[in-house]
């Protein structure tokens, strides 16, 4: 994985985080342990722990403290994926069977709740109420973002503000909080904590917009699902919102429904791609990245800052 080269100096610390993760999910029920391990070991990028560890380098770094925050963030992310697969009725994730598909919805719900509880138990090693308030608020916002996504499905009249708020809640805040909490855990200066939060927020926004663009531009093999799947499921993303500025194209896009034939959907994807919406959405994603880089410039120069910058660049360049 490309990311790994960028932060190889963190490898030993990441291994400690990995050990924490594996220890965290050992339960009395062998099914619960197996189900939790099944997802944890299925090749996640561990991008949130990486952000935590890097942000923590701006304070009085102690891996034995920070590892709890890093593992917590990964566990929360994992728990939300387990439940997302029930929401999306998904059979595959990262090329492997989902928990709900390998076992069933019930096992997936219990496993997600178990992992979530383990996350909070681990976070309770951090004796800082503010850190807990930030994480708790992030988790509530994350759920609100998911609920909004369902509420706004096939709502072709939604405005851009709703989209940006949704991706902020769904994606950007967890990355922003990962950075902020890493810095808090090591007692970094408050101004640095805030900058790291904003860096994570901008990177997260850029990342999600790029994800929404790739849904149209990447191949089915790269995505692991047909192109345009988001739109087909009713998720109105930035490229669609931009394309709908053209009234004629909006009328065509409004005909999308879940049972739409592949050929008809293909024609709409082509129309969106030809409209210039992809290029405009890419520019907006890049603008967020620019903002992220500007935040980094104000941080003390060190290896962590350089790596954060490289990760952000990678996000901008990613093809799938």
């Amino acid at each position: 994985m490309k990311y790994k080269l960028k932060y190889s100096f963190l490898n030993s610390d990441l291994q400690l985080v990995e050990k924490e993760l594996e220890a965290a999910i050992h339960a009395d029920s062998s099914v619960l342990t197996e189900a939790s391990l099944h997802l944890l070991q299925s090749g996640g990028k561990r991008i949130r722990p990486v952000f935590v560890l890097l942000a923590a380098r701006f304070g009085d770094y102690d891996i034995h403290v920070v590892k709890h925050v890093a593992a917590t963030l990964e566990l929360i992310h994992t728990a939300s994926l387990v439940h997302d697969d029930v929401v999306d009725d998904a059979d595959l994730r990262r090329g492997s069977a989902t928990i709900k598909s390998k076992w069933d919805n019930r096992v997936a719900m219990y496993t997600g709740d178990y992992i979530f509880a383990r996350a909070l138990e681990m976070m309770s090693e951090i004796n800082n109420p503010r850190a807990h308030q930030i994480l708790a608020n992030t988790m509530v916002e994350l759920c609100l973002g998911e609920i909004e996504q369902i509420k706004d499905k096939f709502n072709f009249e939604q405005n851009w503000r709703i989209y940006f708020r949704r991706i902020k809640r769904k994606t950007a805040l967890l990355i922003a909080s990962s950075c902020q909490l890493g810095a808090i855990a090591t007692g970094a200066d408050e101004r640095i904590q805030r900058r790291l939060f904003r860096f994570g927020y901008y990177v997260g926004m850029s990342y999600q917009i790029m994800d929404d663009i790739l849904d149209f531009t990447a191949s089915e093999a790269e995505l692991g699902k047909p192109a345009g799947s988001d739109l087909l499921q009713g998720n109105i993303t930035l490229p669609v919102l931009i394309a709908m500025k053209n009234p004629a194209l909006k009328e065509i896009i409004k005909t999308v429904h879940e049972e739409m034939l592949k050929e008809d959907m293909g024609a709409i994807i082509q129309a969106i791609k030809a409209s210039g919406a992809i290029e405009q959405a890419t520019r907006i994603s890049d603008q967020y990245l620019e903002k992220a880089f500007r935040e980094l410039e104000e941080l003390p120069s060190n290896k962590a800052r350089k790596t954060l910058s490289q990760i952000a660049q990678n996000i901008g360049k990613r093809k799938f």
């Binding site: 339960a27 619960l32 219990y110 496993t111 178990y114 979530f116 509880a117 996350a119 138990e121």
Partner: peptide
């Protein structure tokens, strides 16, 4: 959170 962990373990 320790209680929630235990509850789900026993539910399974």
């Amino acid at each position: 959170s320790s209680a929630v962990k235990k509850i789900n373990d026993h539910k399974i």
